[in-house]
Write a protein that binds this DNA or RNA. Structure first.
Lengths: 185, 185
DNA sequence: ACATTTGTGGAGTGATTAGTCAATCATAAG
DNA sequence: CTTATGATTGACTAATCACTCCACAAATGT
């Protein structure tokens, strides 16, 4: 029904399997079950599709991560919720996660629209609040953010490469948050 | 003089700037100052060049990281040396570091030759020894390795993005090792 | 009923690209 | 000098690709 969504799904599948280079727009259209011209009706250029796919995925992640944060949560609880939600999302959406990595390591990074940059501001502000409360000992906030992000990325990669049981996954996720928390406080 | 090296250097520069997709072999040859045919004399296909460049860079890194490890060093000292050397290498070779990331996030990963996989075995074994000695509390070794690698990656990215002074860099590198060490012991 | 916009298809095109090839050049050994 | 081997060149090609164009269909508004 929704051809735009079909195109994005097809693009995700093919880009992660064959790379940006290795997947022609014609194959994307074919996989999506639409005509070649239809693809270019929704996305003016291949580059625009590549960036739009990233934006779409980032929005999904952002929504999923923010959804059960509550105003009365402590800093640690907020941090844990962010962390755990992101990790679960990464496990449930392995392909999307790989696409984010692939995109961020490519020259297309420079095409990220400004609106999207604001999204991670909420997390930076939480960290800054933690620093102000002398809870978080490592500074500056950007450095902490960098450490947490890469940790998340590493744990995700490990979990996906090992194909652990759901129970083991849950345990590892909680433990790994305590590990990071111990490191920065 | 050494045209093969010239081609690799040109490829590194262009691939990191424009991506695998965005850099035709003709441009690489041009940048290297050789004829189109010469490139294919040294590398049968573009894919082979992409993989060969990765292997070449990985060997440089491997050599640099291993060079001042001594047999009598303690586990912690060995770990610190690995960590610090890798981080310094990443700072001094920003482009190479970015290429590694780009390569590892691309579908070309699956083309890594088997010989190269062995390289990281030394580090895994060191971690296993640390676990056996009850020094490192987090298990299994592959998980620890994953955490350290991604931490390294994150710190590197932070340092390069902030363009800190050399003195601040040194301080951050040492502190960040203690951070990771605290986390896993 | 009509007009206007929006979606869809797929053949077609000009430009680009990975890789080839036959011809030279350099070097060194017999 | 002759022969052989490998390096080097750059014009060439067959294939591919991003993107266009225009005809038509479906929905939407008046």
């Amino acid at each position: 029904m929704d051809k735009q969504k079909d195109i994005l799904n097809a693009a995700l599948k093919l880009f992660t399997e064959f790379g940006f280079h290795g997947t022609p727009t014609s194959k994307i259209a074919q996989e999506a079950g639409v005509a070649n011209g239809t693809l270019f009706h929704y996305f003016k250029t291949k580059d625009e599709l590549i960036v739009a796919l990233y934006v779409d995925i980032k929005k999904q992640l952002g929504f999923c991560v923010a959804k059960d944060i509550q105003a009365e949560d402590s800093i640690k609880e907020t941090a844990r919720k962010y962390y755990v939600a992101a990790l679960h999302w990464g496990i449930d959406n392995e392909t999307e996660f790989r696409y984010i990595q692939q995109f961020l390591s490519s020259p297309y990074v420079s095409m990220i629209p400004a609106e999207l940059v604001e999204q991670s501001l909420a997390m930076i502000n939480m960290i800054k609040e933690g620093i102000k409360q002398k809870l978080i000992k490592v500074t500056p906030a950007e450095y902490v953010m960098s450490i947490i992000s890469s940790h998340l990325y590493g744990v995700n990669q490990y979990i996906n490469s090992q194909k652990l049981s759901t129970a083991k996954q849950k345990q590892l996720i909680n433990e790994s948050f305590e590990l990071v928390w111990k490191m920065i406080t």
